[in-house]
Computed example of a mutant assay.
Amino acid sequence: MNNLIGLSKGQSALIDNDPWELAEEQQHRKESGNPGHWILPLADWLEHCQQTDTCRGSQTQIGVLLDPEDDPEILAEWIDQIPLIALQFHTFRDGRAYSQAFLLRARMGFKGDLRAVGEVLRDQLVHMRHCGFTSFAVRKDKSAADALKGLTGFDMIYSRSVTTPEPLFRRRGGAK
């Protein structure tokens, strides 16, 4: 996947050689002999898992793509074995993937790579990080290097989040 930013140990950086590919990208690269790791849409991922049982264990190379209307709870049975979950932003105005990300991290305990794909823009990155995203596939017509600056700007939030579970008044020594 190109135009990618990743977080590691709280630091953000451009990712050059990411092995993950969305299923439709993978179809175009079959001839190359190196398809990389697949990210399958939920229905295809479920079918693949049921047919091959390759979605269990720590060595799986299959990630799942959730559309905004998909229920993340469907993944509960496999949540500890999934290496990557990509959440689709069809438009920057649709915030359902933020809710999915928070649910996956805070309630379901997902520990793998949580990737934002689709209409991912610079101004969204800080909020995405606070919801639990760890990688961002910036829209192809935008610069990932420029978008990277979006993670270094204003980062103080008042409410709790995945990255800062205490609200600001508690972080400043207020009432508990």
Results as ranks from 00 to 15, higher is better:
65 L>Y: 01
60 T>S: 15
34 N>M: 04
48 H>F: 14
61 Q>E: 15
78 W>E: 06
54 T>Y: 06
47 E>R: 15
41 P>V: 05
76 A>R: 15
53 D>M: 10
66 L>Y: 06
42 L>Q: 03
50 Q>N: 14
39 I>S: 02
62 I>G: 00
43 A>K: 11
41 P>G: 08
62 I>N: 08
60 T>M: 11
60 T>N: 12
73 E>L: 13
52 T>I: 04
37 H>S: 08
38 W>V: 04
70 D>V: 04
68 P>T: 00
80 D>E: 14
48 H>I: 00
65 L>T: 01
66 L>E: 05
48 H>V: 00
40 L>S: 01
35 P>M: 02
49 C>M: 09
80 D>M: 11
40 L>A: 05
36 G>A: 07
38 W>S: 07
33 G>N: 03
35 P>N: 10
56 R>H: 13
45 W>H: 03
34 N>A: 07
34 N>Q: 10
42 L>V: 02
64 V>T: 05
55 C>D: 03
74 I>V: 15
82 I>F: 08
56 R>C: 04
71 D>C: 03
67 D>A: 15
81 Q>N: 15
56 R>V: 10
59 Q>H: 14
62 I>M: 11
54 T>S: 13
69 E>Q: 13
76 A>L: 12
54 T>Q: 13
67 D>I: 00
51 Q>P: 01
52 T>Y: 10
39 I>L: 13
56 R>F: 08
36 G>S: 09
81 Q>F: 14
65 L>P: 03
82 I>M: 08
65 L>H: 01
44 D>P: 01
46 L>S: 06
53 D>W: 10
45 W>A: 07
35 P>V: 09
51 Q>S: 14
48 H>Y: 14
56 R>D: 02
64 V>N: 04
33 G>T: 02
43 A>Y: 00
35 P>Y: 01
52 T>C: 03
77 E>D: 15
34 N>D: 10
35 P>F: 02
72 P>A: 10
70 D>A: 06
40 L>P: 00
45 W>Y: 15
34 N>L: 06
49 C>S: 13
65 L>I: 05
81 Q>I: 00
37 H>C: 08
60 T>I: 07
65 L>R: 05
40 L>R: 01
74 I>A: 05
79 I>K: 07
71 D>N: 14
74 I>N: 01
57 G>K: 05
34 N>W: 00
77 E>P: 01
45 W>D: 05
82 I>S: 11
